Structures are given as structure tokens and as C-alpha cells.
Amino acid sequence: MMIGKKFKTYVPFCWTCSTEEVAVSNDEHVDPLPLGSRESRRPMGVDNIRKALFRALQWDVSVLRGRGSAALKAQVNWHHLRGTAQSQGLVVSCVEFSRAAKLKFQVVNDEYAVLTSLSGTADLFIGGEYVYLELGRAVVITQADRVSMELGKRLQLSVLRATRVAFEEMLADLTGEPVLEPLRFERVLNLGQGHAQSWWRMWELLHRELDTPGTLINIPRREQQYEAALLEMLLSVHAHNYDRRMTQLDDGAGQYLDTAYGWPPDYPRYLRRALNIIRDHPTWDYTSKSLAAHAGIGERMLEKSFREHLGASPMAHLRNVRLDLARERLLQASHDIVSIRNLTAQMGFHNYGNFTKRYQERFGERPSETLCRARSSRR
């Protein structure tokens, strides 16, 4: 690889001041990245990458550095959907770095950014909260969040940006009621379960269509329809503080949601709702009271129904679901990316010792033993 002249770039950061030493290289990316036919940049060096991220994502980057001594490069592709005056257009972006990197930033505008992985993984720390990003998960960040990201090598990051006004006007149109409090999404959306899969397929389709010559999405009216559908579906499938209004919109859709996972027909409807919530969002920080509120039933009645039909309390059932997911993650783990302590937090356990104890009670072995066995079988 031909390495050009090394130089130091002094960058004024918004949180701290730092000096980055980078190397310029003429090498090009070889991996295809969606939106390649749209506005695209392939910047090299910290300062140029920061400018590209600001233009495409409106991220004010305070820290950016790659791992190792090779030059840090990036590919940044984006497209502005200008379909509706109401939303002022969604912005769809795809970003890839040439190697593992660390990134700290804050969203500049009053908007939501929905981060998804097209390939690869990243560790996010958002205001002290740890979040793991991988294929099949979406993470929502806002202007109030200060974000630190540890990006894995060859992470392909896809980002949807929309203003707070766009979401709240759409919510008001759907419910017929004013939005008096700010819309607050849950941090993580599981794209592999329930109706979130439909939104994810629609999101993937948008990438493919924008890369297809002559696509209908280039027609303003069709662009407007697609844009509105993305917003509406995200409000429908992702949990937020106006969930109850959304579930009251269509009783028929609610009945379908209650039976989407094929629970036995003798399960009461409120029990199926609670089980769906646990299945879709197993890492949420529930209590029996909050779970009962989501299901639309009293806490004692929900407790009784869980014990009658599943032989366990709601919290015990939730714990078992989390333990099963943790075991699945450990058995599928590659050699160098899994930390059991990080996995403990990801699965909603607040105490590492308690997680280990419960895991051993359920599976007859410690989490570390499961991980060692999984690694040995892959050698």
C-alpha cells in the first residue's frame, strides 16, 4: 500500500481538544456500499471524514481515531428524500470505515437518527447506557444524546434521519390528537421479531431501489408515499411513550398482533399481549406492574394468568427468556468479540454474579464454560 506524507491535523473538538496524526492514502474501498449512485464521498484523514459525517449525518464529531497505524479512510453515501413538505425530507445514509475505529459525536439538529447495521458490529455508549449494534437491531439516538461508538472492522452502518417535527406531526395525524409531550422512543428495536421485520424489509428495499436506475422512488409523489410509510411503520412497530394511542387505532390490527406468535388459543388476550412484549423486547427494564400496564390488565390478574398457563411468575418467565437468548448468543459467538460481562448488560441483567448463578441453575454450566465449548467447536 502506498502511503503518502504524514501530517498532523489540529481539530477543535466540541467536548475536548485533541491532536490526531493521520496518513493520506490513495487506496480505494473495494466493498460495495449501498447508495453508491447517490451523493458519495470517500474521504481520507480525520478532518475530511469529520466534515463528510457532518454533511451526511449532522454529527458533530469530537473524537475520531482508527486502530493501528494504517491510514483511516471512510466511504459516506447519502440521499435526501424530498417527498413531503411536512417532514422536510428524510435523509438516508450509509457509512463504512476502512478499519476498526472509535467515534464520539452528538447529533446537531433536533431530530431522530435510527442506526442499523448492514454488516458488522459496534459497541455504543449513550449517556452511560451500553448498547450493542449488530445486524437485526436498530438503535435510536436524538439531539440530547452524547454517543461513543467502538466500530468493528468493515462495519456498514445505515442511518435514517428525520426531524422531531416530522415524527410528531405524523403521530398527530394518525391519532387525531395533539402531541403535548416530546415523542420518546425506546433505545433499541429488535428487527428480527414481530412486525419490526416488515419495517426492516421496507428499509432494505429502499436501499436497493435507490441504487436501481429508473426507480419509481425518483418520482416526487412516490418518494412522498414511501417516506410517509417509513415514518408511520416505525411509529407502529417501535415502542414509545404514545404506544397506547397507536394500539387503539385499529382493533383488527390489534387482534392480529395478539396472535402473531401462535400462542395457544386458550391463553387470554392480555396474556398473549404480555408474552408478545417480552418476545419483542426482552431486554427492557420491566416490573410486574409495568408489564401489566402494557398488557392492559391488573398486576394480580396477570400474575395469576402467568402461573396458571406457564407455571412461573411474569418476572421468572422474563428471566428465562433472557437466559435462553444469552445462551444462544454464547453458542454462536466468534472467538474474539464476546464479553460475558457486556452480554450480561445486553440481556438486561444488572448484576453479573446473579446472571452467572441463574445461568448455571438453568443450564447446568457457567456462561464461561458454554463460551469455551462454543469456541472449541469452531477451531
Score class of each variant (00 low, 15 high):
5 K>Q: 15
6 K>F: 07
17 C>A: 13
18 S>D: 10
24 V>Y: 13
27 D>E: 14
29 H>F: 14
29 H>P: 08
32 P>C: 00
37 S>E: 12
42 R>N: 12
45 G>H: 00
47 D>G: 01
48 N>M: 09
52 A>F: 05
56 A>I: 02
58 Q>P: 02
62 S>W: 03
62 S>A: 10
65 R>H: 07
67 R>M: 14
73 K>G: 12
76 V>T: 11
77 N>K: 06
78 W>Q: 00
79 H>I: 02
84 T>Y: 13
85 A>N: 12
86 Q>C: 05
87 S>D: 01
92 V>W: 08
96 E>W: 00
100 A>D: 07
100 A>E: 15
101 A>H: 00
103 L>M: 12
109 N>W: 05
113 A>S: 07
113 A>I: 05
114 V>M: 01
115 L>H: 09
118 L>G: 15
119 S>N: 07
121 T>E: 13
122 A>M: 11
122 A>E: 06
123 D>A: 11
125 F>S: 13
130 Y>T: 11
131 V>R: 06
134 E>D: 15
139 V>E: 08
140 V>M: 09
140 V>C: 11
141 I>H: 02
143 Q>C: 09
148 S>W: 07
150 E>Y: 08
153 K>S: 08
153 K>Q: 08
153 K>A: 09
157 L>C: 08
165 V>L: 10
168 E>S: 12
169 E>R: 15
170 M>G: 00
172 A>V: 02
176 G>P: 02
178 P>W: 03
179 V>P: 06
182 P>C: 05
182 P>K: 01
197 Q>W: 03
199 W>M: 01
203 W>N: 03
205 L>Y: 09
207 H>W: 01
209 E>G: 00
211 D>E: 04
212 T>N: 03
214 G>I: 12
216 L>W: 11
223 E>L: 07
224 Q>C: 12
225 Q>P: 01
225 Q>F: 06
229 A>D: 09
229 A>F: 00
229 A>C: 04
230 L>K: 01
232 E>G: 05
233 M>R: 12
235 L>M: 01
238 H>M: 14
239 A>S: 14
241 N>K: 07
243 D>S: 09
245 R>G: 09
246 M>T: 04
250 D>W: 13
250 D>C: 13
251 D>C: 06
255 Q>F: 10
256 Y>N: 11
258 D>E: 15
260 A>Q: 14
269 R>H: 04
276 N>Y: 00
277 I>A: 09
277 I>E: 11
278 I>P: 01
278 I>M: 08
279 R>K: 14
281 H>Y: 13
287 T>F: 06
289 K>E: 15
292 A>S: 14
295 A>K: 02
295 A>E: 00
298 G>R: 10
300 R>P: 01
304 K>G: 04
306 F>Y: 15
309 H>W: 15
310 L>A: 00
310 L>V: 02
311 G>F: 02
312 A>P: 03
314 P>E: 08
317 H>M: 05
320 N>I: 01
320 N>Q: 14
324 D>M: 08
325 L>V: 03
326 A>S: 11
331 L>C: 11
331 L>A: 14
333 A>P: 07
338 V>M: 15
339 S>E: 04
343 L>C: 05
343 L>I: 05
350 H>F: 09
351 N>G: 02
356 T>I: 13
359 Y>P: 03
368 S>W: 04
370 T>S: 06
372 C>I: 13
374 A>F: 09
376 S>H: 10
377 S>Y: 07
379 R>P: 03
